[in-house]
Design a protein around this nucleic acid. Structure first.
Length: 155
DNA sequence: GCCAACGTTGGC
DNA sequence: GCCAACGTTGGC
């Protein structure tokens, strides 16, 4: 396993958990991911990996801040909590289904980078970039070093 | 609030 | 293993 720093993008609905919330709490367990592809990406994350914090389902969806991976993947406790909206009756402590990572606040962007602006750079970012791929709803995705640099140059 | 796109579930 | 039904995501 390489120890080179990698990059990711993680979506959150700001009414649920925003970059300001992350700034306030410092570090947050990324609960609630219930998609296997997204989960598998989290399992690949290493401490110190860069995270683009994306606001979805909001007036101006886009990238609003930067975080970093503070703890590698471990079972998401909400899958065991009956009262949680993330409860999964098929998950057991012996065989958990869902993992999460801890994300630590790094900084807010000087200005948000709106999705429609990101779309304008599709050529440079690549058609395969899940964020701008038609119909893609993936909430955790890898970002290449080149994409990371390109996106932050729009700040 | 609408709805297209997608993922999951469950009957067969 | 197929696929219709259903639930969710997330832009608009």
């Amino acid at each position: 396993m390489s120890t080179r720093k990698r990059y990711w993008l993680m979506k959150s609905e700001p009414t649920d958990f925003s970059i300001d919330d992350l700034a306030r709490v410092g570090t947050e367990p990324w609960t609630g991911v219930r998609n296997y592809q997204a989960r598998n990406f989290m399992r690949q994350m290493q401490i110190g990996d860069g995270v683009l914090f994306y606001h979805s389902n909001t007036d101006v969806p886009g990238i609003y801040g930067i975080g970093e991976v503070a703890a590698t993947a471990y079972p998401d406790p909400t899958q065991f909590q009956k009262k949680s909206k993330y409860f999964d009756e098929k998950a057991t402590r012996e065989q958990p289904r869902w993992d999460l990572v801890d994300v630590r606040f790094v900084r807010k962007l000087a200005r948000g980078i709106p999705l429609d602006e990101i779309r304008g750079h599709a050529d440079a970012l690549g058609e395969e970039f899940a964020l701008i791929r038609k119909g893609s709803r993936l909430s955790v995705m890898p970002v290449t070093a080149a994409q990371w640099k390109r996106l932050l140059s729009l700040e």
